[in-house]
Design a protein around this nucleic acid. Structure first.
Lengths: 226, 226
DNA sequence: TACTAAAAGCGACAATTGTCGAGTATGATG
DNA sequence: CATCATACTCGACAATTGTCGCTTTTAGTA
């Protein structure tokens, strides 16, 4: 998932001049060199050394503390900047994660205790998952959230909870540009024939699982990058 | 902008054990320690040293080369992984970037050779910009692109090219939740009164520039983090 | 089991960072 | 213009990284 601290850290590392990127972010957070130094527990000259280029390649540990310091300073001031730079997280997304290694569709099926009802062979490998609250998704999912659903790879399983007939989720997938590797319904009340038809047309396996939501979340989290 | 290299770098830096994160990504890219070492131009034992924890805090430079090596290896093999993990980039977005430091609205105006036509004082600082092709935006901008337009901060200037009357862009801004710090029309054919009215209601400065697109892109790119 | 590729370990040494503090420059403000 | 806060410069030294090549395990397989 894209978190602000990783974003800042990544930008610092990949910048030609890490010091410049550090300066940029320090200014974004409206903090003085001293503020940051104090929050990091180091002398202000270190910050200056990097920003000026005397030191050029800060270590991972240093960067981590630097980013942490910015976020702490901001939090003490009410978290203004963090809020501004953080994406709105919709509560329609229950859980999201990327796996530490690709999981074959078949194996994924057995892990979530699912059974295919579409007859489409799960031939794509799965790199991550998103659990979505169908009801809230309809009510509150604004356009900004779509990208979040897809996390870092479209090669993922979309798992819908609170499904009544199972039509809406498949229609959403159908009209949507990005195609998941698998669609899972969690304890649906029923599954409409139209959903199955759409799954076949799209070539996306449609799967039903009866595992409890907690179990489901737990097994999926165990496979995540740690 | 969310790019894969920054994402990986950020994850490595922020991990409790950078070495484990490095290992994870190396495996995602299905490369051996030796592959990576060769692509980086260092001895394989260095990779081992980090993955095993003998060295714990790799420098920014090292991480950059490491990430670069993974991407190069992948590219030689056809770019499978990169494609899988990269988001689709809409061609409605011509250019997008974040500045190395906040730019006062007034200064930004002079840089892009713009003049205000709304009478709204540009009091917010500007952290980045997005150049959007109005025509393509209308035709092809699907919900997924909205987040991309806003990059990493809403404190940015949205620059629209190919503007005919200037109504649509402001209407989009009006109905959209996220508010840019400034809206710029690039060589509009004309500017409707409604656009100006909306700008005033929203309190967002509406600006026109006649700089060539190339010049515009160049000046903006010069201000980016390097 | 013997062979091979991949990974882990380790000793050694130069280069760089991590760290401080003191002194200097710059800039805003009373 | 005197003052305070912020930022920049720099010397110094210990700790760690950056780097190699060689050896030992480990794991997969002929």
């Amino acid at each position: 998932m894209l978190s602000l601290d990783e974003k800042i850290a990544g930008e610092i590392v990949m910048a030609e001049k890490p010091g410049s990127a550090m300066k940029k972010w320090r200014l974004v957070f409206k903090a003085s060199q001293r503020d940051v130094a104090r929050a990091m527990g180091v002398s202000p000259s270190m910050i200056s050394d990097y920003e000026s280029g005397r030191r050029r390649s800060p270590g991972a540990q240093f960067i981590r503390r630097f980013v942490g310091a910015l976020l702490i300073i901001d939090e003490e001031r009410g978290g203004e900047i963090r809020k501004r730079y953080s994406m709105v997280q919709s509560d329609a997304i229950i859980s999201i994660g990327e796996f530490s290694e690709p999981v074959p569709g078949e194996k994924f099926l057995s892990i979530i205790g699912g059974r295919d009802i579409s007859g489409v062979a799960p031939k794509r490998e799965i790199f991550g998952y998103t659990i979505i609250d169908s009801i809230k998704a309809i009510v509150s999912l604004d356009p900004n959230d779509y990208l979040q659903i897809y996390g870092w790879s479209t090669e993922r399983a979309l798992i819908f909870t609170g499904v009544k007939y199972g039509r809406s989720p498949m229609i959403a997938v159908r009209t949507h540009m990005l195609k998941p590797a698998m669609v899972v319904y969690h304890r649906p009340q029923s599954v409409d024939n139209l959903a199955i038809k759409l799954a076949r047309i799209e070539g996306i396996p449609l799967v039903v699982t009866d595992l409890s939501l907690d179990m489901l979340k737990k097994s999926l989290e165990d496979m995540r990058i740690k």
